[in-house]
Design a protein around this nucleic acid. Structure first.
Length: 281
DNA sequence: ATACAGGCTCGCC
DNA sequence: GGCGAGCCTGTA
């Protein structure tokens, strides 16, 4: 396979792909195989360079957000011991730009699931309903469109191990494919309006909405609070606040982590999950 | 084995 | 408008 070289300073490919933003890239040899939208992509890191299959360079640069000013973003984090450890640990971790529908659908499937399960579900949906695209000797399936899933059924989706999430994914696919929810047009909404729109979709609550805002709409202040981040916040920032509810935590994160809160959240999350002794993936 | 996981939703107060 | 239980499935 002929490869194109692109500059990628301040970037850690493996860590970024393993940080719970995206769930379908597969390690192969020295690199990773996956899909960006409908296109199959091979990408491999050597130091500050990425090597990608031909004609995918622009796609890759944009997907991995190599233009985000990472040094400036990290410098804007609050200066406290917890944040500083996470920042050093996660050097080169970037918030990527995912296709909107794919991101939304995947996070609807993520509720109450560990990462290994989410990967299984993503693979099952892709293999069953997604378009195949060959790259070298590999066949990669793109994530199925909302239209394709809308024509599916709850039974078929349940066969992909979605459980109770099948109903939500199907309902949301139908709303999106019918044009009643225009995910692309929502890009122009304010953060608040976007979150409200997303939360109006079946299977989407505050946590999922914030993930989609952060990973697909580039709302870098979106701060998803899942069980891991909540644990970090409570243990490290409020060790003896017995009664601090979700709204209180929310208010703290917005005020304390500020405009780049999404990046801060991702770093806290990845550090906590990776260094936790008990659970693995 | 039985609990539990990167949540949403509904019914209850 | 805050709180608890149920929902599917795979894994420990």
């Amino acid at each position: 396979m002929k490869l194109t070289k692109i500059a990628a300073p301040d970037f850690n490919l493996a860590m970024t792909l393993d940080s719970g933003q995206v769930f379908h890239w597969e390690k192969t040899g020295a690199g990773f195989i996956g899909a960006i939208g409908e296109r199959s992509v091979y990408v491999e890191q050597r130091g500050n360079l990425l090597f990608v299959n031909q004609r995918s360079a622009d796609l890759v640069r944009n997907y991995f957000a190599l233009d985000h000013p990472l040094a400036r973003i990290c410098a804007s984090f609050p200066d406290d011991p917890v944040m500083n450890v996470a920042r050093d640990f996660c050097h080169g971790l970037r918030i990527i730009r995912q296709p909107k529908w794919e991101c939304l659908a995947t996070f609807i499937c993520s509720s109450m699931k560990r990462i290994v399960h989410i990967r299984q579900i993503s693979r099952a949906l892709r293999n069953r309903f997604g378009n195949a695209d060959k790259i070298d000797k590999y066949v990669v399936h793109a994530f199925p469109s909302a239209e394709r899933l809308a024509q599916s059924s709850e039974r078929l989706l349940r066969e992909c191990a979605l459980g109770y999430r099948a109903k939500n994914l199907l309902a949301t696919a139908r709303i999106v494919s019918s044009g009643n929810a225009d995910l692309e047009a929502w890009s122009s909404l304010s953060d608040l309006d976007l979150q409200a729109k997303l939360c109006g979709l079946p299977g989407v609550g505050a946590k999922v909405a914030n993930c989609v805002m952060l990973f697909a709409y580039e709302r870098l202040s979106a701060f998803p609070i899942d069980v891991w981040v909540e644990r970090v916040l409570r243990e490290k920032y409020f060790p003896r606040a017995r009664k601090l509810n979700a709204a209180g935590l929310r208010r703290f994160t917005e005020e304390y982590f500020g405009k780049q809160g999404g990046y801060a959240q991702q770093y806290l999350f990845h550090h906590a999950r990776t260094t936790a002794r008990r659970p693995k993936l």
